[in-house]
Design a binder for these strands. Structure first.
Length: 345
DNA sequence: GCAACAACCTTTATGAACTC
DNA sequence: GAGTTCATAAAGGTTGTTGC
């Protein structure tokens, strides 16, 4: 409204629905042009006019405006509706996206996936560090994250009680990850299989065994605390995972910025972040022969068009799909053939 | 009428910079 | 160091269009 009325409003300012209802699509479109190009006088065919922000920023601005519109749900019909849901507004975002494709816009901040060499370097660098948190704990978290293809915050929320012996296979563990993002039902986070590996850089079981043995000496998971968080001695349900996640990310960041790691990473272009590990795990599984759908199921990604892969008529426990991906992430074929390809009928 | 696809919309998370 | 804000990315739901 400050931009529209050419005056400064404080954050405490409130506006009547009648005032907000006066906002037209061209107002929103002009505002987005101003955000992206610094002017409302934009000719999209002019290749000399380049946006200075990403389309995702404009989409977020659009959402923020949409939140306050008196009519949110209805598309703009020419005279009424939500002005952010209009062709004029969408065109601005589309043109900025086009400029991104043509490399005429701000560079993307998306992180790339780790390479296998980089991953191994991270593991080795962690073991070269001094403290328990930096070495055994972070290395174990890293191995669990890769094996389960999770986000960093999902790993930070793991509890001792989430790990159990696998009910059917004595050589395996099962783990329930309480996936945080876009998850609203219990059946969307079924138990997943954990397999061992002959490669110590990847063995989630060995990492876990090392970590648990050492962690008791540092006050983690004391007797009678089966429901305690696995990777932090803190118990506050809100703060403990948050602090654990922050510490994990900080240690990884320090490794990513260390000279020995940079000597390896300099060979590949692109920025690394904590999400690079999840991307690496997905890429690794795919590279080892898992199909995209199998990786989706292991990583709990939703299928693009067909809804949840763990949908209503399919059991959320799908070991014949989950296990082969776990096997590939463990770098070695351990499973009996009957498990690697269980018939679907 | 329906399925496949594309475009649009919403929610949630990350990371850097800044403030207290 | 913890909390906040802002810019950005990721993930997935919803709706509209098209072709059979």
């Amino acid at each position: 409204m400050s931009w529209l009325h050419k005056r400064t409003y404080t954050k405490a300012a409130r506006f009547q629905p009648s005032a907000l209802g006066g906002i037209q699509p061209h107002h929103v479109a002009d505002y987005l042009k101003w955000c992206a190009y610094g002017t409302t006088d934009v000719d999209f065919k002019d290749l000399e006019q380049n946006p200075t922000c990403r389309s995702s920023t404009l989409e977020q601005d659009k959402k923020a405006i949409s939140f306050y519109m008196p009519i949110k749900g209805a598309t703009w019909n020419g005279t009424s509706g939500n002005p952010t849901k209009s062709d004029a507004v969408n065109e601005v975002v589309k043109e900025v996206k086009k400029a991104e494709t043509q490399h005429r816009s701000k560079k993307s901040c998306a992180t790339r996936d780790l390479t296998e060499t980089e991953y191994r370097k991270v593991v080795h660098e962690l073991y070269g560090k001094g403290s328990f948190e930096s070495t055994i704990r972070t290395a174990c978290m890293l191995k669990q994250q890769v094996h389960l293809i999770t986000r960093t915050d999902d790993i930070s929320k793991l509890k001792y009680s989430d790990y159990k012996p696998h009910p059917d296979f004595p050589f395996a563990l099962s783990c329930k990850v309480h996936w945080s993002k876009n998850i609203s039902e219990e059946r969307q986070c079924p138990d997943q299989i954990i397999l061992g590996s002959m490669d110590t850089d990847f063995c989630a079981m060995l990492g876990l065994a090392n970590y648990m043995e050492a962690s008791f000496n540092y006050g983690y998971g004391a007797a009678g605390r089966e429901n305690a968080f696995l990777f932090t001695p803190e118990s506050d349900p809100k703060l403990a995972p948050k602090h654990c996640n922050a510490a994990y990310r900080n240690i990884l960041k320090a490794v990513f910025l260390s000279a020995p790691f940079l000597a390896v990473a300099v060979l590949v272009a692109g920025v690394l972040g904590s999400h690079s590990i999840r991307k690496f795990a997905a890429t690794l599984a795919r590279g080892m022969g898992a199909t995209a759908d199998e990786v989706d199921i292991r990583g709990r990604w939703k299928a693009r068009l067909s809804g949840w892969v763990v949908d209503a008529y399919i059991s959320p426990e799908q070991p014949w799909i989950d296990a082969p991906v776990a096997e590939k992430l463990a770098w070695v074929l351990l499973l009996p053939t009957s498990y690697t390809r269980m018939p679907r009928e």
